[in-house]
């Protein structure tokens, strides 16, 4: 299988879906003439033209809302946020309109739209540009939340998200864009269904659940722990909502221990949600409390060594795994 970068995988998904369906249109800041702030949309303007690759002014609430309005009447817009940090000024549009219109209309009006962009910290961009936003969106019924960690999942999940009739929050990562991975040829038209986790590494001693950037941290920790004789089973949920609870619980029933690794803050959020589901569904199978490794409970600092301290690290994952294994 060929190997491509995460950003190329995202770009291929967009291009393939635009090719097959004229109702797909991309709106966002610098997506066209600038070729994408992170080069995800490079070349798309030349390929699809200004009608379908729409550069917007800096007005997230405006173009997110226009995307939603267009979705109500038959388009399938992809709205790019330059980063998810800028989605907060469009929060009302996403939460009050995109997530609610299907319900408010008594199930008669669908909202097929994808909001996408990089999520999480991106190396020393400080407090306002480093949010892991999944807790905000995953708590809202009516939204789907997807957070692919590797190129193949990014492509297959994005293609499914674009074809879905519901609003999808699609979380990429600035520090993920350059990662390479095997992705099937475009001719395969691979669709990865939302709501299905991936067992990334099998193991019998402890289950480690992680997505996004921390997934790679967890994989590295698993490698290091293997050298010490601790076999981690790493599960990438891929979709935060709906959550593939079954795959996670099945693994915990096997390993009897679990560590959840996530970049969002420790108060609540999907990390806590996963722990809650494990204690409800696998209480009798647990041999240790489920632990979480998260970002520290502070706004992101600028200084490099402090940022490194705040984000989940291989060392902290290793330490947490050792604690639940009592080793």
């Amino acid at each position: 299988m060929r190997s491509i970068r995460y950003r190329e995988a995202v770009r291929e998904a967009i291009a393939e879906e635009m090719e097959r369906d004229d109702s797909v249109v991309l709106l966002g800041e610098e997506v066209g003439h600038y070729q994408g702030a992170y080069k995800v949309t490079e070349g798309l303007l030349e390929r699809f033209g200004e009608r379908r690759i729409v550069d917007t002014p800096i007005a997230e609430a405006g173009f997110a809302g226009i995307g939603i309005g267009a979705a109500l009447v038959g388009l399938r817009p992809i709205v790019e946020f330059m980063t998810w940090n800028f989605s907060f000024v469009a929060f009302d549009q996403i939460v009050q309109n995109a997530a609610k219109i299907f319900q408010m209309s008594g199930g008669t009006v669908k909202v097929p739209i994808v909001f996408r962009g990089p999520n999480g910290a991106a190396r020393q961009v400080a407090a306002q540009h480093s949010h892991a936003v999944e807790p905000f969106y995953a708590s809202v019924p009516g939204l789907l939340v997807v957070a692919p960690s590797i190129p193949r999942d990014a492509k297959g999940l994005l293609k499914s998200a674009i074809r879905d009739d519901n609003p999808v929050i699609f979380l990429e990562g600035e520090t993920l864009y350059a990662i390479r991975g095997e992705v099937p040829d475009p001719s395969a038209d691979e669709l990865i269904p939302l709501g299905v986790a991936r067992v990334a590494r099998e193991g019998s001693d402890v289950t480690v659940v992680a997505w996004g950037r921390p997934y790679h941290t967890a994989m590295e920790a698993a490698e290091r722990l293997a050298a010490d004789g601790i076999a981690c089973e790493v599960i990438d949920p891929r979709t935060i909502r709906p959550l593939d609870e079954e795959t996670i619980v099945r693994s915990v029933r096997k390993t009897h221990r679990c560590v959840v690794v996530h970049e969002h803050w420790p108060y609540g959020g999907p990390g806590a949600e996963i722990v809650d589901r494990i204690q409800r569904e696998a209480f009798d199978d647990l041999d240790a409390p489920v632990l979480r490794v998260s970002s520290l409970d502070v706004p992101m600092p600028y200084a490099a060594h402090l940022e490194e301290r705040v984000l989940p690290s291989v060392e902290r994952v290793v330490e947490a795994v050792r604690r639940v294994c009592y080793r």
Binding site: G107, P141, P242
Partner: peptide
């Protein structure tokens, strides 16, 4: 309960 999400073609699993 039915009017939270539109029916999904790729509805393969997961609990909201």
């Amino acid at each position: 309960r039915a009017c939270v999400l539109a029916e999904r073609a790729s509805d393969a699993g997961g609990r909201a």
